[in-house]
Amino acid sequence: MSVEARLAHRNFLEQSAATSDPSLRAVFNEDAVSIVGDVSALAGVALSQIIGSSVPQAVAAVLIALVLIRISLRLVKRNHDFLLGQPIPPADRDRVRTFLLAYPGVTAVRELLVTYVGPSQIWVLVRVNVADDLRSNQVTTLVRGIEADLEQQSPYIYRVDVVPIGEDEADP
């Protein structure tokens, strides 16, 4: 890899990694809802004082409840998705694929699995075709090289496993 290519790839995955943290997400949502809730409560109390009816306060209370329920269901779904195993966005996946294909000796990317194993923690599992004229120790060097290089590309890459297969080998 050239220096330019390395720089171009630096910090990739950063965007999607930032959205994989459930604590940040929850705190931001809570804070947003708190403000909405406080404002509606205040408006409800003020309106009730002005018109002398308790209806605005009751409406505000129900509104707060609905917003909370809506937010909580979104958070539940989000955490469910990540527990199940969330793939990274297609654009980031393509970047990883391009990165792999740039290696001399790698002729094709057969299977590419890029998934979250935790907040800002990405696991890359890939099956690559390697050129048939490589000797086994060259293949080992290539695989170790890709693994080390990819891990250096982004602080969010937690683990890389590269499985080399010969060009004429059928898909497993």
């Binding site: 943290d21 459930p22 604590s23 997400r25 929850a26 958070l75 955490n79 990540f82 527990l83 979250y116 194993v117 935790g118 907040p119 923690q121 696991w123 937690y158 683990r159």
Partner: peptide
């Protein structure tokens, strides 16, 4: 794979 998914459980 570490304990990262623990975060999603508690969240």
């Amino acid at each position: 794979f570490g304990y990262g998914r623990e975060s999603y459980f508690w969240a």
